[in-house]
Design a protein around this nucleic acid. Structure first.
Lengths: 183, 183
DNA sequence: TTGACGTGAGAACGTGCGTTCTCTACGTTA
DNA sequence: TAACGTAGAGAACGCACGTTCTCACGTCAA
């Protein structure tokens, strides 16, 4: 079987399991079963579990930011793009399998033990922050707003994950509107 | 030895280890060594590791909120008490052993496997939110502000933990000021 | 045909850890 | 003094899991 296809199968299985149950709660055996690959093949593609975890976070990062960008770019007016971020978050929070932010959860789980995971988490959060900074600049708003919107979004993700409700997105959007007007 | 004293010793050791290295990365053996108690005694006090984890979160919750309240109450002016929350966060983020919010981290680690931990995390976050709501009411500000300040604080905790910087507290305080004026 | 090689399936290995058990020592009480 | 209960120290147990090994089988080159 094509290596590329096998890799995607492994990552599909890993993402579903790691995100849904937590990294440490999922054994390589479960990934094997879910992916339909043999353990041998799995270890050829990812020589250790940590590699698989990092690859999972990496691929999810690309997808996550891709989807966000896609949603935001539907709005031509730069002023509307900022609330659109929170609309997208709200939609995400409402998905049936939503279980909080994969990177925040991974940091809680592995932050103290895996330097590579920490690097991955920091890279993702920095990229998201940079994305917000771009939107703020395009809307002609002061740069200081970017960090504030970022904190609102992070708070909303955490809170939505813990409480299992999508409401924090609306609260954050309201706060973002107020901050945009205030600045 | 007095049971009460032994319990405190166990919890002191557990808190230091669980918060510093993560719950799953710390074995009961490490807790035994750090506490100076025998395994037998430890299991008499906490029949399973999960009990110890829940007790750790419970005691930390009381202390954490106690310290916050103590700091906030130093200010007599209700208007100043809200920024004081973020001052306190900044001070906390700057502590040498700061490693993010214990409850958010625990949720990331155990949220999918331990219902009791989830309950504990939700209770803590709800209590913190209620505390903010009280401060907002005392300051004569609209109730809607409480949730927004809560999201800012949560975002700041997460971000400070991941980046290892205390700066998010200042950003959040600035945003909180702007929101208070805007509402 | 034959032998080398890659692959799949899963058994096996080693380790770590939560929990329990054993053994010894000591204090208490009749 | 002798019997008994309790606690400490840590060995032992059972299990889960990351990783490696075995073995049978199909494939392809010479």
């Amino acid at each position: 079987m094509d290596s590329e296809v096998a890799r995607e199968q492994a990552l599909d299985a890993a993402e579903k399991l790691f995100y849904g149950r937590g990294v440490q709660a999922v054994g390589m055996d479960a990934v094997r079963t879910a992916s339909g690959l043999s353990l041998k093949r799995l270890y050829q593609l990812f020589p250790a579990k940590e590699e698989l975890v990092v690859a999972y976070l990496e691929r999810r990062d690309l997808r996550w930011r891709g989807r966000l960008a896609e949603h935001v770019e539907r709005h031509d007016d730069p002023q509307e793009r900022i609330p659109a971020v929170f609309d997208w978050l709200e939609q995400w929070f409402g998905e049936a399998d939503f279980r909080g932010c994969a990177w925040i959860n991974s940091y809680g789980e592995l932050g103290a033990t895996s330097e590579r995971v920490v690097t991955q988490v920091r890279a993702h959060k920095r990229a998201f922050r940079d994305c917000l900074a771009g939107l703020v600049a395009d809307a002609g708003l002061p740069a200081i707003l970017a960090g504030q919107l970022f904190l609102l979004a992070e708070g909303a993700m955490v809170t939505a994950g813990i409480t299992g409700s999508a409401e924090p997105a609306a609260e954050a959007r309201e706060a973002a509107r107020a901050l945009s007007r205030a600045n």
